[in-house]
């Protein structure tokens, strides 16, 4: 009897603990999950660039500077007055996107990925920052990721398009403010090839992504 009671008590305690841990993990996950609307994940990110609005607009319209800035990362092709085609790939060259960018109003443009691993679309607004802090680039990104079951259970991991967006915003800010995106890969070190490859993987993790 005693041993049965002990067993039941242990089972009860284990179940309660498992449920508690599960609930906590689920709550944590939910907090880090992007909003969902009309079958899309929706994230909003912003970055402040220490330049007036005109300088930001000027950066996008100065073809030479833009090409230099995007070298090795993306190409832009102008389709007509308000439409551009952007072909981009990630740093490692593993995945590529083709997107159409449309200027939809003053200080506003939108884009839609026509070919790429993840369906996505988004909108960029330029907003003056308070005081003398320059211009805020505010972005709303919508993407689909994973199958319906993963989406229903909130099991999206890493949220790659969101990370890509944060990385892109950081790069754009840096390009406009100081003309380059700082990079310390291939700086000298006493590492052999294998150690350097492992360090590059760490660099990648410490370079892309964001706070969440």
């Amino acid at each position: 009897m005693t041993s049965n009671a002990t067993r039941w008590a242990l089972l009860g305690a284990t179940t309660a603990t498992a449920l508690g841990v599960g609930a906590t993990v689920a709550r944590r996950r939910r907090r880090h999950q992007p909003d969902r609307r009309d079958g899309w994940y929706v994230v909003r990110r912003g970055i402040t660039v220490d330049r007036p609005m005109d300088a930001l607009v000027g950066f996008w319209t100065d073809r030479e500077r833009l090409d230099r800035a995007l070298a090795g990362w993306a190409t832009l092709e102008q389709l007509d007055d308000n439409r551009w085609r952007c072909v981009a790939r990630d740093r490692a060259g593993r995945t590529g996107w083709r997107a159409e960018i449309t200027v939809t109003g003053p200080r506003r443009l939108s884009w839609r990925v026509e070919a790429g691993p993840v369906p996505q679309q988004g909108r960029v607004d330029l907003v003056p920052a308070p005081r003398d802090r320059g211009t805020e680039i505010r972005v709303e990104l919508r993407y689909r990721f994973g199958g319906p079951v993963r989406r229903a259970l909130g099991l999206v991991r890493g949220a790659e398009p969101d990370q890509g967006l944060r990385d892109a915003l950081r790069r754009i800010k840096s390009l406009i403010e100081c003309g380059q995106v700082i990079d310390t890969r291939r700086d000298p070190s006493g590492r052999d090839q294998r150690q350097e490859a492992a360090t590059d993987r760490l660099r990648e993790r410490l370079t892309t992504g964001g706070r969440a």
Binding site: R170, I182, L206, T207, G210
Partner: peptide
Amino acid sequence: DNSNAQPVLTE
């Protein structure tokens, strides 16, 4: 803002 090439850890 722009000189830390690997800002994720300190963020």
